[in-house]
């Protein structure tokens, strides 16, 4: 990026807080989150929309942040893994992922958590098959997915009872 690189300013709500940020217009939401806002919880494995590591929630929907131009996000409501906790309390999904071994290296975990959150927000009684379907855009090389399914279902159960 040089001095004459076109720049864009957007205002968005990130994890409930209003932010205004200016960046090279070519940047994706992923890059702006990580590089401009210091929110490195969101990961990347391809930057081509193929791995799901960069999934965040935009206006309540799971979105691959590497495929979304940040310049298009003016006015958007963005939720990242950093905003998943309720103050210092882990989200039930985070509790379940931690307890049931759903995060091994943890690199894919933010993407899975945000995708699973969107699923459970929309469909709190999701079945195992629906969980598999909803998470099929996220790749995990460590876990073999089984403990992730278990964690999502266990969190759904707890959230339903809460």
């Amino acid at each position: 990026m040089t001095d004459d690189t076109p720049r864009t300013t957007v205002r968005m709500t990130v994890n409930g807080e209003d932010v205004e940020t200016t960046f090279g217009t070519h940047k994706t939401l992923l890059e702006v989150l990580r590089e401009e806002l210091g929110l490195t919880g969101t990961k990347h494995g391809c930057e081509l929309g193929e791995c799901g590591a960069c999934a965040v929630e935009v206006d309540g929907k799971p979105i691959l942040s590497c495929l979304l131009m940040a310049a298009e996000c003016d006015g958007a409501k963005v939720e990242t893994v950093e905003g998943l906790m309720d103050d210092a309390r882990l989200h039930p999904l985070q509790e379940a992922f931690a307890d049931l071994g759903a995060a091994q290296c943890g690199y894919c975990t933010p993407g899975f958590l945000m995708t699973a959150k969107s699923l459970l927000d929309a469909n709190p009684k999701a079945t195992r098959a629906e969980v598999k379907e909803a998470l099929s855009g996220c790749l995990c090389r460590c876990t073999g997915y089984q403990q992730i399914f278990d964690a999502v279902l266990s969190a759904a159960d707890k959230m339903g009872r809460a």
Binding site: G41, V81, E82, L84, L90, F97, A98, G106, T109
Partner: peptide, 9 residues
């Protein structure tokens, strides 16, 4: 685990 599920690793 906590670091891993909060994106803090």
């Amino acid at each position: 685990a906590r670091a891993r599920v909060t994106g803090q690793v």
